[in-house]
Amino acid sequence: MTLLLIEQLLNGLQLGVMLFLMAAGLTLVFGVMGLINLAHGSLYMVGAFAAAWVAAQTGSYLLALVASLAAAAAAGVLIETLILRRLYARDHLDQVLATFALILIFSEGTRAVFGSFPLYLTIPPPLSGPVTLPGGIEYPLFRLVLIGAGLAVALGLWLLITRTRVGIRIQAGAADREMVSALGVDISRLYTLVFALGAALAGLSGALVGTLQSVEVGMGEPVLITAFVVIVIGGIGSVQGALVGAILVGLTQTLGAFLLPLASTRLTGAPDAGQVLASMLIYILMALVLIVRPQGLMGRPA
């Protein structure tokens, strides 16, 4: 039982760091640009499909990951410059409606290009199979690589935001975009850069997660809902909060799905009540965080 619990903890951590890649871009876009982007899940899907297609054509998983970054970033730049740039000064309802329309366009466009059948990414042979951890725990090597890669991206993003001139401009743009623009910074170019960065992270997340499951049309929408929960818990606009929130959500969701049905079975003889509660658990967590800290764990008060 102890070994199984440790395995679920690692699964929760892996889910958390993948959610962070999705949520980091979302919280950057909202924090800096004030834009509610429901199409962020579509960029996740674009990255997954680009990776699956390139892997099928070349047999290279590394090229597939590069393709996921490039395709999602290019799609992000395209929709930001052609559509979203006209929505920054508009009401959030207009942004929601426009980006919801983009979801439909991306879904049907992807179906027209790739068809309705799912695609698959294969784990590279050097990363396949289990590895033995201290204590005799056997755990898939690829999932450990995902944890390490996600944490490395989180560190790199933190260094970018806090230690570079571009990062300083991003922080300043989130705090006071009018003043940044008045100081001579090209705010339109900054917005495009932020959106492309967020899109690339979403695309990378889609490719990595798509290696563990099928790549199919509409795969980004369920993840988008969870990513919104993450940024609300962590604090809108905070990259550090997105990491903390993602790990909390990943652990809560994974351990809840594992432990609550077991507890329900022991108490009532049926796992159904535990499964229902497990599906609600991350939303209960979000509600509790908002009661204690309405701005999120690491968000700034409005």
Results as ranks from 00 to 15, higher is better:
236 I>N: 07
230 V>W: 04
247 I>Q: 03
221 E>H: 08
219 M>H: 02
243 L>E: 03
265 T>N: 03
244 V>D: 00
227 A>H: 01
258 F>Q: 10
230 V>I: 13
232 V>N: 07
251 L>V: 06
235 G>N: 10
234 G>Q: 14
241 G>N: 13
246 A>E: 03
225 I>N: 07
258 F>V: 09
221 E>D: 13
228 F>A: 03
244 V>P: 00
228 F>I: 05
262 L>C: 03
248 L>M: 15
236 I>G: 04
249 V>D: 02
245 G>L: 06
247 I>S: 05
225 I>Y: 06
258 F>R: 11
261 P>G: 05
235 G>R: 03
244 V>R: 00
250 G>Q: 00
219 M>A: 01
258 F>K: 08
230 V>G: 07
262 L>Y: 06
257 A>P: 06
259 L>H: 12
264 S>E: 06
266 R>T: 09
229 V>L: 09
232 V>R: 07
241 G>H: 13
240 Q>G: 15
226 T>R: 04
224 L>F: 13
230 V>T: 12
254 T>P: 00
224 L>V: 09
252 T>K: 06
250 G>F: 00
246 A>F: 07
229 V>K: 02
247 I>F: 14
225 I>F: 10
224 L>K: 05
242 A>L: 03
227 A>V: 02
252 T>Y: 05
236 I>S: 07
244 V>T: 05
224 L>G: 05
221 E>W: 12
238 S>F: 04
226 T>H: 01
248 L>G: 02
219 M>I: 12
253 Q>Y: 05
234 G>P: 12
224 L>Q: 09
267 L>F: 12
254 T>Q: 15
252 T>V: 15
250 G>T: 00
233 I>T: 12
251 L>R: 05
254 T>W: 02
267 L>W: 11
259 L>D: 10
243 L>K: 03
243 L>A: 04
255 L>Y: 09
263 A>T: 04
225 I>T: 11
230 V>A: 10
235 G>S: 09
239 V>Y: 02
240 Q>N: 14
221 E>Y: 11
263 A>M: 12
228 F>G: 01
249 V>A: 04
258 F>C: 07
261 P>W: 08
223 V>Q: 02
226 T>V: 15
248 L>S: 12
262 L>A: 11
221 E>S: 11
247 I>T: 09
245 G>W: 09
227 A>N: 01
262 L>W: 12
225 I>V: 15
226 T>P: 00
265 T>H: 03
263 A>F: 11
220 G>N: 06
244 V>M: 01
220 G>T: 07
258 F>I: 08
263 A>C: 03
266 R>Q: 12
251 L>I: 10
255 L>S: 11
248 L>A: 15
243 L>P: 02
245 G>Q: 11
237 G>Y: 13
219 M>Y: 02
236 I>R: 09
223 V>S: 00
222 P>R: 13
218 G>N: 08
248 L>C: 14
221 E>M: 13
220 G>S: 10
254 T>H: 00
241 G>D: 14
240 Q>D: 11
241 G>E: 11
250 G>D: 00
239 V>G: 00
263 A>H: 03
253 Q>F: 03
240 Q>H: 10
225 I>S: 10
219 M>P: 01
238 S>G: 12
229 V>W: 01
248 L>E: 06
244 V>A: 15
220 G>E: 06
267 L>S: 07
219 M>S: 02
231 I>L: 14
235 G>Y: 08
260 L>C: 09
242 A>V: 09
220 G>I: 04
264 S>N: 05
